[in-house]
Design a protein around this nucleic acid. Structure first.
Length: 425
RNA sequence: GGAAGGGUGGGUGAGUGGCUUAAACCAGCGGUUUGCUAAACCGUCGUAGGAUGUCAAGUCCUACCGGGGGUUCGAAUCCCCCCCCUUCCGCCA
């Protein structure tokens, strides 16, 4: 959500930034609506002032037993105009809000230009893709050969885009999640949170999924929404709050299932575990001081990278261009993991600094010691990491010619000491 | 699901139609006093929007007591709907 005053004061700057996202100009239209709204408001308020004064007189006259007919007539004359003025002012306000709510965050200055993922900029690589003496398989073939990944069974239960994991692969999923949480809570300073997976409209509005992207979500018959990411409950923990400046940054992590309807993704990644209606993810969220959010963004990305380093998975870090960023982000880094079976890098984490965009929607503020007023916090979120896709990466990078899959050293304590997963008989 | 009680500024909490311009206290901020600290005393202290003004200071106005609607000349206060919290009952892992 943008500040209408900012748009009013710097319309050219605002439109220029939106143009980098490939969007047309709206600032002049908004400024014009805003001016009409303020004029309507002034007219309305002047009438209210008159009415209040007359009402006050009525009270006085009546108390002294007099006849207040003149004042009553004055108020009656005002009544109709007052009603229409109020309606007009509210209608203009709603028109402005509806427009504002649909406008994405402005990209930060250092975000690369470009309209789609082909313009993203690679920042760094880590780890070398493994060399195989055989043609590496994709993860679903590996999982099915192990007898521990069953898409047919999942289809029977739930339809397409679901999976059933069994035995060592089910445990591997659990091990990965536990490993990530231990790393982020034990070494990276995040507090573990176990949030609700069903949330109200307000929470999704705060983080920016609503009102525009309801199509991508699942909704329960109670009106609750299934969370598409733990970003929603974690970030909304500060909704409506005034945090002490000394407590910033708040760093939170959570393991949750994520539910996405994948509307509009028909035909994309239909095979395998890459794109599912349900997956688990360890999420990182920071509530930061505005002056510290850029550094926090780098730190968060490094925390996510650390997971891949410990697991020995090759990856690269991409700076998303303006056109490829999500609605609420002012700057985003994607981490892409190497998948030998697909012979390409695939997104496994996305770390975004949302600036004050979500904070404004949520009314999340902080106050410095002794400060009179409050300021909006900055919010950041990142995957640390998507558990399902990490499992995919392990299967593909650690596959052996005999059909077994090695367990990365870091995970062995979480796997009861198991060092390799072998085909199930 | 049933019943009852609640939701008021940063916090506690008073307020049953005009005396509220939301009391009081706490916290905060400024000051006085003071070897230091503490205490005491005095002052100040909500948010948003608008008008005016030199993009200032200031002055004035409006709205805001969980959200929305209604009654009324006038609503924190009365009525209706919704949300949330607490307690009890029922059901339940």
């Amino acid at each position: 959500m943008h500040d209408i005053r900012f748009i009013r004061e710097k319309p050219a700057f605002f439109d220029k930034a939106l143009a980098r996202r490939g969007l047309g100009s709206v600032a002049l239209q908004l400024a014009e609506l805003d001016q009409r709204r303020r004029a309507a408001q002034t007219a309305f308020q002047e009438m209210q002032a008159k009415r209040n004064e007359a009402s006050r007189q009525i009270g006085e006259v009546k108390k002294q037993g007099g006849d207040a007919a003149a004042q009553l007539a004055e108020v009656a004359a005002l009544k109709e105009a007052l009603g229409t003025a109020e309606i007009q002012e509210k209608a203009l306000g709603k028109e402005i809000d509806d427009l504002l709510m649909g406008i994405p965050n402005l990209p930060a200055d250092d975000v690369p230009d470009g309209k789609d993922e082909t313009a993203n900029v690679e920042l760094r690589r880590n780890g070398k893709p493994p060399v195989f003496s055989f043609a590496p398989l994709e993860h679903d073939a590996i999982g099915e050969r192990l007898g521990l990944m069953d898409f047919g069974a999942a289809a029977k239960l739930s339809g397409a885009r679901f999976v059933v994991l069994k035995g060592a692969l089910a445990r591997l999923e659990r091990a990965l999640a536990a490993f990530m949480l231990d790393l982020h809570t034990g070494e990276n300073g995040y507090t573990e949170i176990n949030p609700p997976f069903l949330v109200r409209d307000e929470a999704l509005f705060g983080t920016g999924q609503l009102p525009k992207f309801g199509e991508d979500l699942f909704r329960a018959n109670t009106g609750h929404w299934l969370i598409p990411t733990a970003e929603v409950p974690l970030t909304n923990l500060v909704q409506g709050e005034i945090v002490d400046e000394a407590q910033l940054p708040l760093r939170m992590t959570a393991l949750t299932p994520c539910f996405r309807s994948e509307a509009g993704a028909a035909g994309r990644d239909t095979r395998g575990m890459i794109r599912q209606h349900q997956f688990s993810k360890v999420e990182l969220v920071s509530i930061a001081h505005p002056d510290a959010s850029a550094a926090e963004h780098e730190r968060m990305t490094a925390c996510a990278e650390m997971v891949l380093q410990r697991l020995g998975l090759p990856y690269r870090v991409m700076a998303l261009c303006c056109g490829d960023m999500g609605f609420s982000a002012m700057k985003t880094y994607d981490i892409e993991v190497w998948l030998p079976g697909q012979n390409c890098y695939r997104e496994i984490s996305s770390c975004s600094n949302c600036g004050d965009f979500q904070a404004r929607r949520m009314n999340a503020r902080f106050r410095g010691a002794g400060d009179k007023g409050t300021r909006f916090v900055h919010t950041l979120n990142g995957s640390g990491l998507a558990v399902g896709r990490t499992l995919v990466a392990i299967l593909e990078n650690y596959q052996q010619s005999d059909g077994a899959v090695l367990v990365p050293e870091a995970l062995r304590p979480y796997m009861g000491g198991l060092d390799r997963i072998v085909p199930h008989v």
